[in-house]
Nucleic acid binder design. Structure first.
Ligand code: FES
Ligand code: FES
Lengths: 131, 131
DNA sequence: TTTAATTAAGACTTTTTTATCTTAAATAAG
DNA sequence: CTTATTTAAGATAAAAAAGTCTTAATTAAA
């Protein structure tokens, strides 16, 4: 959301500055952003005037993508009870329930872009931190 | 599900036996069942011929109840981003999304009883374990 | 070309969660 | 009443996750 608000293309935003603005540990934030960079959502640059910036336009990045990157690509493929393998071959008792809910969740998360949330965040002054 | 299958009322089922049937550590299973007993879903008896049994009929126990007991009573009241307090006073960027999804999840989980799942489990031979 | 600034990567530490073990309490049967 | 059996509760241990720190690599600017 912080980055979405900085709608300038073609420039990097310092993680240090972001961490101070959001009151998040610098090292923690750096680690948190790494998978997004690795998966091509962001692009980073080291050295002076370095930082991170969107590679994909936030209009094109869905919540679904972010969830899969942060929670693991098979977040929606695993058994709700934690059993090995989730599928019709050997369904567990809640498999049907989970499939129903899963499709709703995936549809919802896939329909929302970072830009959509970002816009709302800044027009409605939604909070990004506790204090 | 194991207990639901034992549709005899008025009798206790040994946790030891259950743990062997399901190939779950006895101590682990005992601990897992304790909150259900404490919250009045099950009733237990110590001593010879002791064990656990349903106190509430499985027809009257919803998945929602089980989730709240096992995951904590405010599982559906906390902020999706982990911020302190979730509510309209100080909503976070995904608050709206979360409220929408939450109501769907709660409705779904509240509409399903243990008996419903249990019946399906045993008519369709659904699995309760990995091997 | 050197230096300062900045992220990346991996090691390390701390915290939290999960699992196990030990002891206590309860109950039925002999 | 005593003993064997069984769950409860709490302590301990192990594993996993989260967070921090150190060092390396990259880059722009002087
Ligand atoms: S097998 Fe358990 S949710 Fe699919
Ligand atoms: S404030 Fe974050 S989900 Fe409600």
């Amino acid at each position: 959301m912080y980055l979405v608000s900085k709608r300038e293309k073609q420039r990097y935003f310092s993680i240090r500055e972001m961490s101070e603005t959001l009151d998040i540990s610098f090292h923690f934030l750096t680690k948190a952003l790494q998978p997004l960079t690795q998966k091509g959502i962001l692009v980073s640059s080291r050295g002076p005037a370095g930082g991170v910036s969107f590679l994909k336009a936030p209009e094109e990045v869905t919540l679904m993508e972010i969830i899969l990157i942060l929670e693991g690509e098979d977040f929606f493929n695993s058994c709700m009870l934690g059993l090995d393998g989730c599928g019709l071959q050997r369904p567990c008792p809640v498999h049907g329930v989970w499939m129903d809910i899963k499709s709703i969740l995936m549809k919802e998360f896939s329909s929302i872009s970072l830009a959509m949330i970002g816009d709302k965040t800044f027009t409605q002054h939604l909070r990004l931190m506790n204090v």
